[in-house]
Design a protein around this nucleic acid. Structure first.
Lengths: 219, 219
DNA sequence: AAGTAATCTTACTGGGAAGTAAGGTAGCTC
DNA sequence: GAGCTACCTTACTTCCCAGTAAGATTACTT
């Protein structure tokens, strides 16, 4: 752990180093199983420093959450902005998402795989981070709905529904990506776009799938 | 916790009672934050009984995992079997999934929201449970591919991809469901089918979405 | 160079939870 | 009713880990 000769480091930078390590450890072990000792150790620092700068284990986790959520949202926005048309924006946003997740897998795990095992205090913070991501996507969707001049009666509620389905699909597809490293993030994005957007477009145009007429009695 | 007058209960039944409680506690607290003391207490029993019957905390968790995975897969299969056509089977399967999840939310949380914070020993078990679910869905998808006589070159890999996207969408939609209790599981199923199946059908038919021609330079 | 503020450490405390030792008690069989 | 087995308990031990007390060292300021 000896970087060099006990060089001292200003707070701003040290905090980021600590958060860097914390994200990987929280991702690998989960919130409770992660120990502040290990994080401090891997950061090449002693435990009281963590408490001095980040207050508590919760504070440290919240700091991770906020930073990674902001990074992801920023990447998403940056990619989507400046694209023409809702489909192009969604495609760009999705691409940014997959790029981010495949490059910062730990960040994603911390942001979205920590549903349980959190104190009430943090739970709200997680919900906030999740919502930030969802809102970005839902925004793009409702743009799409608006611009398509849809005849179907799709409203904000629907955009939210579609956003959930889309983010969920994207999330799980990252698992698939892990087992298919030959597939570039771009390719994956395109596949998903094809699966989803084409469907959405047709739904917007009023094309519908209907269940077959009652083949088996209820219960 | 006094059921009645210290009634003794045969092992078979007691084990199930313990697992019942454990699923809810693991779901609420997460693996590490859950305490065997609490589980034993809520089951109206003392801790050594848990260790006598389930060996260890890990053993208890694995038991939960196995039982709930089997229940879900069974429900899915039962619904899909006997339906005519791949879309009807998928619709029925999805419906069973949402029914199961909305009725046994804890089971689903235990099955799929425990990615991190698991010892190596359990991690494999979780992967196994997840794969069981994925395989059911992927099976239905590739049936769909086969029956559609698709001209596109979709193979098993594609079925796997679509299965991931689909299960992910379904998973996250359960979160949406929680905030929209007025929406019946059936309605939700239909919405998702419309969003996904229509898109898949068109993709199978060769209709494709293509990204707009390079509006911005790489990097 | 003295003073001072920021960075950093060793070495502890306290509590919570996994797992166990040792032994009760109900209900069955003979 | 004697004895056996399955069910069940109280009361520990042990270890891990969040959080802290007390103080050392570096480097900047004047």
């Amino acid at each position: 752990m000896k970087e060099q000769r006990k060089r001292r480091v200003p707070r701003r930078i040290r905090e980021q180093q600590i958060i860097d390590v914390a994200v990987t450890v929280f991702s690998k072990r989960g919130y409770h199983a992660a120990s502040v000792d290990e994080i401090a150790d891997l950061a090449g620092i002693s435990k009281p420093m963590v408490y001095l700068y980040l207050d508590s284990k919760e504070g440290l986790f919240v700091a991770c959450l906020r930073r990674e959520a902001e990074r992801l949202v920023t990447a998403f926005q940056a990619a989507a902005r400046g694209q023409q048309g809702p489909d192009a924006r969604l495609y760009a946003g999705l691409g940014a998402f997959f790029g981010f997740v495949s490059e910062h897998r730990d960040s994603w795990v911390v942001l979205h795989r920590q549903a349980s095992e959190l104190s009430e205090t943090i739970a709200g913070e997680v919900a906030l981070a999740r919502r930030a991501v969802m809102e970005q996507v839902a925004g793009l969707i409702s743009d799409g709905i608006a611009e398509s001049g849809s005849t179907a009666d799709l409203r904000e509620e629907d955009a939210d529904f579609v956003a959930h389905a889309l983010v969920g699909a994207a999330d799980y597809v990252t698992d698939w990506m892990e087992r298919h490293p030959d597939q570039a993030p771009d390719t994956v994005t395109l596949r998903l776009m094809n699966m989803l957007w084409v469907g959405m477009r047709n739904v917007l145009n009023g094309e519908a799938w209907l269940p077959p007429v009652a083949p088996d009695p209820p219960q």
